[in-house]
């Protein structure tokens, strides 16, 4: 068995290469972000799993991820493999030193204020650990949802240029511009995790490390449900050994865990395409924020541009 791990951008390009060139080498199983499934299925890249095993019940997929796995009623094209539902963690001792209590961080504004006031007692640590790698949709989602905003309607129309979403983006990029949210250290390495004492707040899995016992979990500001992000396994439609591939997918797909109240990225027919448009805007804004050139007007322009492009592309492929 040969396993190839690819960064998401490379995986996306590889999937399109498979579409364009029927002779291109292709794997027997692919692992893709769950919300790409509807688009890849529509492009005819994925095999319908119930066609491989008629007795298979798509309802076996956890309910929050079912719209991703089953873009058509009763037809599943992928199964969950790796699930992540990051929570917001905080160093309780530093919070106390700053004279704050966890319940005082319940709103996005209170969280922003806390980030400013804790700067003095953080001991040179980053306040909020940024994502390793580039800024992605999933990184921006908690900020936008916390302000009651959203990204796309169920038909794929861009909603992220609306006021609530803009306020969420403002929170995110102002934290970067103020140096509170650190994308990478001067060394180019990611900020060490909260459990290792590298930051005050972290959005991620349960922390490990020498400082893990000082960490407390916080509710998401604005009461937003945490994001459930998943990698799904699927069988490419022209797989040479579909039965064997399906058997392997079944064995690798875990039994659905009990999932708390979570939110997923929307299941859209152009999710992968729209994600790339949005993430390009996020990257440009990150450059502006890091370069001290960030402004609200610049944010509005960039987001409005991305929303117009997303709508135009949706219109072309409606």
């Amino acid at each position: 068995m040969e396993i190839t791990a690819k960064p998401l951008a490379e995986l996306w390009a590889g999937l399109f290469q498979m579409l364009r060139d029927p002779d291109a080498p292709r794997p027997d199983i692919v692992a893709v972000p769950s919300h790409w499934t509807p688009q890849l299925a529509r492009l005819g890249l994925l095999m319908e799993l119930s066609a491989l095993e008629p007795a298979f019940d798509p309802a076996a997929c956890p309910a929050p991820l079912r719209p991703h796995a089953c873009p058509e009623e009763g037809k599943a094209f992928s199964l969950p493999w790796r699930l992540e539902a990051p929570a917001l963690f905080c160093r309780g001792d530093i919070l106390e030193r700053g004279g704050l209590r966890p319940e005082e961080l319940a709103s996005p504004d209170a969280f922003r204020r806390a980030c400013r006031s804790l700067g003095k007692v953080a001991g040179g640590r980053a306040l909020l650990k940024g994502p390793s790698g580039s800024l992605r949709w999933r990184d921006a989602a908690p900020f936008v949802w916390a302000r009651g905003g959203d990204f796309f309607s169920t038909e794929g129309r861009a909603l992220f240029a609306r006021e609530e979403a803009l306020r969420g983006f403002e929170d995110l990029f102002e934290l970067i511009a103020e140096g509170a949210l650190v994308l990478s250290e001067d060394s180019g390495l990611p900020v060490p995790g909260i459990g290792e004492g590298g930051c005050v707040f972290e959005l991620g899995p349960a922390p490990e490390g020498p400082y893990a016992d000082r960490v407390v979990a916080l509710p998401f500001p604005g009461g937003a449900a945490p994001l459930l992000w998943a990698l799904h396994l699927a069988v490419p439609s022209d797989c040479a050994f579909p039965a064997e591939a399906w058997k392997r997918v079944r064995s690798l797909s875990p039994a659905p865990p009990p999932l708390p109240d979570v939110r997923t990225l929307p299941a859209l027919l152009l999710a992968g395409t729209l994600e790339r448009i949005l993430e390009r805007a996020l990257e440009r804004l990150a450059v502006l924020a890091l370069g001290g050139a960030y402004s609200k007007q610049g944010l509005q322009d960039e987001v409005a541009h991305a929303a117009a492009e997303a709508d135009a592309v949706s219109g072309q492929y409606a």
Binding site: E10, G133, D186, G188, L290, G291
Partner: peptide
Amino acid sequence: LVGRDETLVLGPDAPL
């Protein structure tokens, strides 16, 4: 050889 998603967006005065 390891495949990984890594993009470093840098400030104009970042040492890198």
